[in-house]
Each structure stands twice: as C-alpha cells, then as structure tokens.
C-alpha cells in the first residue's frame, strides 16, 4: 500500500516559494521514494532547480517515513539547518506535510500532490482499492470495490455507459460492475447482485474524522 503522489509543476512550486528565499527540502524514504516523486534522487533534482531559481538551500533530508512519529527525532537532529530556513519544502505525501507541520513554526510547502492510496496489483501498477468509506461492500461484490472501481461509485449494478466491459469515461478502464458480475458468476453468487442496496450513509464517521484507540 502506497500513498500515490505526483510532483507539482515547478511553476506552482516557484509561486508557493515567493518571498521564501531560504529553503530546507524534506523527502520521504517510503512512499515518495517508491513512486519516484520524493526520494533521494528527486530531492537532489529539486535542490538544483531551486538553486537555479536563486534560492538558498539550508539543507536537505530524506526521512525514513515522514508520516510517523520518528519524524520528530529527525527534525531535532537537523534543527539548526531547519531553523535557518524560511520554509520547508516537503516532497513527502500530504500525510508527511501534516506530520512536519506539527513540529515546525515555519511554513511547510508541499511539492507533490497526493492522489490516492494505491495497492500494487502487478509490479509498478497501483490501483486505488479503498476509499475508506466506512461501509464495506466487498463481501457482496466479490472483493471488487464499487466505490473506487466504478467511476460513479454505483452500488446497484452497472450504468448504461458500460461498453464491452469498459467504462464510459475511458475505454482503457474496466467497468467495475462487469468485473463484479463475472466474479460473482464464477462464485455462483449472482443473487448478491440482485439485492437492492439502499442509498449510502455518507457520514458513517463524521467529518472531521478521528478515532481514539483505548
């Protein structure tokens, strides 16, 4: 499971750094390293781009896992270089940006956009498998999530836009309900598809979402 990210256009990063001349860059050794968006190599490339922009780099660091609580320790070890910066440019996913912001007074600017939580189904191919909707349908949809795999998140079967097993939004994308139908048929459980699913509860966990584990 990886937090899937895409690097922001350099123009947007430049705009975000307006008036912030001294920069400390943080990458992440976990997800953005594996997706080539914020590992050692990309941090080094970003450093060069910022220097070309005329920025002063007070330091760079690739934290093993930017979203976990060990980030606090890594921040303390690099306190001096970080304190010397006007901002921190984060090449971790948004979870890392959030964690870094907990420890720092200076602005934390994201250099990547976080897209989805992906599962690697075949080498290098990641798919969003769960939207954390709080109401799991997988037991009646043969393990294929209709919330993430169907463009419209339909729970009662396919729409009229499905064509030869593909989705109306993109001929390369599979129709979730054709996949669900095929697998339920194989399992001899098509009766599940015939059941009426009532409208979903969009507030299973009330936003803002949090949970205290005792």
């Amino acid at each position: 499971m990886k937090s899937m990210t895409k690097q922001k256009p350099i123009e947007e990063i430049q705009q975000s750094l307006e008036g912030l001349d001294k920069v400390f860059i943080v990458g992440c050794g976990t997800c953005t390293t594996l997706t080539n968006t914020g590992g050692v190599e990309q941090v080094e490339e970003m450093k060069e781009k910022l220097q070309e922009m005329g920025k002063w780099l007070t330091g760079t660091l690739v934290i093993p896992t930017a979203c976990d609580d060990m980030t606090d320790v890594a921040m303390k070890e690099n306190e001096q270089a970080i304190r010397g910066a006007d901002c921190l440019l984060s090449m971790s996913c948004a979870l890392g940006v959030h964690r870094l912001s907990l420890y720092l007074d200076i602005p934390v600017i994201p250099a990547v956009d976080t897209l989805f939580i992906g599962v690697e189904e075949t080498p290098g191919y990641f798919r969003e498998a769960c939207a954390q909707c709080g109401q799991c349908f997988l037991g009646i949809t043969a393990g294929i999530c209709p919330i993430t795999a169907c463009h419209k998140g339909l729970v009662n079967g396919p729409c009229g836009g499905t064509n030869n097993g593909k989705c109306e939004v993109d001929k390369e994308k599979d129709c979730a309900w054709t996949l669900i139908y095929n697998r339920l048929k194989e399992q001899n459980r098509l009766h599940l598809m015939r059941q009426y699913q009532p409208p979903r509860n969009h507030h299973v966990t009330l936003q803002p979402k949090s949970m205290k584990i005792s």
Binding site: N156, G157, P158, W177, Y181, L190, M193, R194, Y196
Partner: peptide
Amino acid sequence: PQLIKFEK
C-alpha cells in the same frame, strides 16, 4: 448485468 439491473 444490465438485465439484472432492469429486473431490480
């Protein structure tokens, strides 16, 4: 699959 939805 369309017929299942039709019946529903």
